[in-house]
Computed example of a mutant assay.
Amino acid sequence: MSKTVLVLVETVDDYLPLLEQAGYRLVRAQTPALRAEAIARDGGQIDAVLTRGPLGLSADEIAALANLKIICVIGAGYEQVDLAAAAARSITVTNGAGANATAVADHAMALLLALVRDIPRADASTRRGEWNRVISPSVSGKRLGILGLGAVGLAIAKRAAQGFDMPISYHNRSPRSDVPYTYCDSPLALAQASDFLIVATPGGANTRQLIDKTVLDALGPDGFLVNIARASVVNTADMLEALRTGAIAGAGLDVFDDEPAVPDALKALGNVVLTPHVAGQSPEAARDTVALVLKNLQAFFAGEPVLTPVRG
């Protein structure tokens, strides 16, 4: 008997046939209205849910899915999945750790380069017929701090160290013994040791607003911030004030508190580069993400350990 997967994500459509070809029945519900309708209509038949961190799955929704056995989250973050409700039902939760790390790391470096070298404003002024040869800082050789040295953080560190000769420092919940980079015991210490600070840690209660005024002041007026993780890790009000006053030099942001809304105060600033939460999106990343979901589903329904379990 085939298993039924409720698909809430809207970014991997081209590769969902990988699941169908493996015999899974898909119920696509990629808007809030379709989601509520599908849960009400098919709740008793759904064996698995495919979601992503910001879309999540609530306790009420889990309760309405009487046959639910596994929740697969694409991407590393799972902040809006109610892990306690899942654990109470012994529902397995997996994430997509590492599946899109290459794309996210590429985008992080692209944001950093565009920001520090002031590429968007140079492009815009040149298109207007101007010839503003503004002198921008170099990237090579600068000190890079990475908040969160998981799969994405490691991929960023590799690019920065090998491609741009950047000394790497990092902060994690605990030091890693398998890397040659310098461990800092707090976000504040990391900012003090960095010219550029990239946020690459998952969202959630444990990382909420780790980057605040104190950390931004430590990064300093020549420092740049890049966030390709979750907006919740950074205190947005503190960041806006730091950008306005010159407490930091600039910020490159792919994530925002109330997506898809972007604060007008951010749009008005000339020292920011903004992208619409696309760091993890590429054809290759989408393919690899769905392939990992399939491996987790196949392992789970065969009674084997899943590849990327989330511990509640």
Rank of each mutant, 00 (worst) to 15 (best):
residue 101 A to L: 02
residue 140 S to H: 08
residue 173 R to C: 00
residue 118 D to I: 03
residue 182 T to W: 00
residue 85 A to K: 11
residue 128 R to A: 14
residue 156 I to Y: 02
residue 115 L to H: 04
residue 159 R to F: 01
residue 94 T to W: 01
residue 86 A to S: 07
residue 174 S to V: 08
residue 185 D to S: 15
residue 134 V to I: 15
residue 116 V to I: 14
residue 160 A to N: 04
residue 117 R to E: 00
residue 81 V to L: 01
residue 158 K to N: 06
residue 82 D to H: 09
residue 191 A to Y: 04
residue 179 V to D: 05
residue 96 G to S: 10
residue 122 A to K: 15
residue 97 A to Y: 04
residue 171 H to P: 11
residue 127 R to A: 08
residue 99 A to H: 05
residue 138 S to L: 11
residue 182 T to K: 09
residue 184 C to S: 07
residue 134 V to H: 11
residue 136 S to C: 12
residue 102 T to K: 10
residue 157 A to S: 11
residue 126 T to V: 13
residue 169 S to Y: 00
residue 134 V to C: 04
residue 166 M to Y: 07
residue 138 S to N: 12
residue 121 R to P: 00
residue 153 G to Y: 03
residue 129 G to I: 12
residue 106 D to W: 00
residue 114 A to Y: 06
residue 81 V to K: 02
residue 193 A to Q: 13
residue 161 A to T: 05
residue 130 E to L: 12
residue 113 L to R: 06
residue 81 V to T: 14
residue 130 E to V: 04
residue 186 S to Q: 11
residue 119 I to T: 06
residue 124 A to D: 13
residue 88 A to Y: 05
residue 138 S to G: 13
residue 121 R to I: 02
residue 153 G to N: 08
residue 152 V to A: 09
residue 136 S to D: 02
residue 177 S to D: 14
residue 101 A to G: 07
residue 115 L to K: 05
residue 132 N to P: 07
residue 104 V to N: 00
residue 190 L to K: 06
residue 133 R to C: 04
residue 147 L to P: 02
residue 102 T to D: 12
residue 151 A to G: 08
residue 95 N to D: 11
residue 167 P to R: 08
residue 178 D to W: 06
residue 127 R to L: 08
residue 81 V to M: 02
residue 143 R to Q: 13
residue 157 A to G: 08
residue 124 A to P: 09
residue 168 I to A: 05
residue 99 A to E: 09
residue 190 L to P: 06
residue 81 V to I: 11
residue 106 D to H: 09
residue 142 K to L: 03
residue 176 R to H: 13
residue 150 G to M: 08
residue 171 H to N: 15
residue 131 W to H: 13
residue 147 L to S: 03
residue 165 D to Q: 14
residue 85 A to M: 09
residue 132 N to H: 13
residue 83 L to V: 12
residue 111 L to Q: 11
residue 141 G to W: 02
residue 186 S to C: 10
residue 189 A to L: 04
residue 81 V to S: 03
residue 152 V to M: 09
residue 146 I to K: 05
residue 89 R to P: 10
residue 82 D to Q: 08
residue 91 I to M: 05
residue 99 A to C: 12
residue 122 A to S: 15
